[in-house]
Amino acid sequence: MAASVNGIHPVVPRPLKAGIFAPIPTFFLPESEDLDISSFEAHVVRIATAGVGPLIAGSMGEAIHISHVERLVLIRAARKALDAAGFLDVPLIVGTGAASTRETVQLTADAAKAGADYAIVIASGYFAGALAHNHAALKAFWTEVAEKSPMPVLIYNYPGASGGIDLDSDLITELAMECPNICGVALLTRAGHSCGNVGKLTRIADAVSGSAFTSTYPRKNPIAPFLVLGGFIDFLTPSTFARGHGAITGLGNFAPYAIRKLFELSEAARTDLSILPEAQRLQGIIARADYTIAKTSIAGTKFLLEKMYGYGGTTRKPLPPISPAAGKAIWEHPHTQDLVTLERQLSGKV
């Protein structure tokens, strides 16, 4: 159960369901780099309206650049905006990974008090040399965080943001079986080192699917089943057939209606193969755009949001902004414009 933080709405359950989740950027005012709360609130509601779940204070949200106090401000603002817009049942997933286990545990507890429903936790890469190949230490980290967390925890496996730390499918499966408060894993990729591949996703999804897993390894919270989520959207359709549960994708900020539609078609195609060609058509458009846009990372996503919706702004230093020339090139790229056309069609804003 999750409580509203504005004192108006009653306590409501917010189940964790398969689907698409967007890691929300943290928006900053141009001169001061203070939090731009109005743009943040508007964007969270925009994403929820499209049927996409918000994930705040993740890598796309520049969590490494925001203080703990700012993180709590964002949680309260997101919950308030969602409740005011009528999205009382939309859960908030919040990144709470920190440098040490102790700090991660404290931040997770503080996030829950501020209104978060689920935590997503990455291991710090500062001492990756000692941790990357230490199965016992990595297992102990997520085990302790999950045991002490007042809310369910997702494993965030992103080698590119954790100094190359990459959990294999065996370790993730062990954590799923032994930690009832762990409710899923997000598998992301870095260039040249695949984590979010269909093979790893398939192995984990196979292990946690079916009634045998559910009955033998029940979750601590019954509304938080173990989800296996891809970290990029370019393989959503094949991962759905491998019994994956959706994706966490930065592209969901830019084209939430298109990506939500792709998820719905991919799910439907599992039982009606006549739908598969349309899912494949959308997957092609989205995969090409994802490949092109992902190269520009956070700065490029913010630039595209500015072009698409009128807000986005820049990054917080020292992360550099995208150059005007590069921004213009990415906006005008045929892959981007194909996705813009699709998004406008599906959102009714042609």
Rank of each mutant, 00 (worst) to 15 (best):
K261Q: 05
T202L: 01
P91K: 08
E332I: 06
I155A: 01
I64C: 09
A48C: 08
H9T: 15
S124P: 09
V5Y: 08
L342P: 04
T108W: 02
P321Y: 05
A247N: 00
P321C: 06
A99E: 05
A85D: 07
K307Y: 06
A224G: 12
S209F: 07
T101K: 07
F127C: 08
E267T: 14
E62Q: 14
A128E: 07
L171V: 12
A326I: 05
L227K: 09
L72D: 11
F28E: 01
Y217T: 00
F263C: 00
H9K: 12
L276H: 03
P321K: 05
L154I: 02
G51W: 03
A329M: 13
L304I: 08
F87M: 09
L305I: 13
A287Q: 01
I155P: 01
S67F: 11
G115L: 11
V340F: 11
A98S: 14
G252N: 01
D168H: 06
V340W: 14
R260H: 09
L131I: 14
H333M: 03
K17A: 05
D110H: 12
A207E: 08
F28Q: 03
Y156F: 13
D89A: 15
N181L: 06
I56R: 11
A18T: 04
P30W: 01
I75W: 15
T49F: 00
T237I: 04
D117T: 13
G97Q: 07
R243W: 00
T271M: 02
K307L: 05
G61P: 11
K139R: 08
E332V: 02
T214E: 14
R288H: 09
S39G: 04
L201P: 00
C195E: 04
G19N: 01
F21S: 07
T216S: 14
F213M: 08
A2T: 14
E147M: 03
M308A: 14
T143E: 04
G19P: 05
L92A: 06
T104H: 05
P222I: 05
F40K: 01
E306L: 12
A84S: 13
C195D: 03
P320Y: 10
P256H: 01
N157G: 00
D168I: 04
G160D: 11
I47T: 09
D206M: 06
T216I: 09
D117M: 03
P13A: 11
N134D: 15
P324K: 06
V185F: 12
A128D: 11
H68I: 12
V153L: 09
F241H: 08
H245W: 03
F241G: 02
L88Q: 14
L154K: 07
F303A: 14
G310Q: 12
T271A: 10
K317V: 14
T26F: 00
T237Q: 04
A212T: 13
A132F: 10
L276V: 11
L92E: 09
I64Q: 12
T143Y: 07
D338Y: 00
F254K: 02
A136W: 05
G95D: 10
V73L: 15
F303C: 13
I248F: 02
D272E: 10
D272T: 07
Y217I: 01
A176V: 13
E70Q: 15
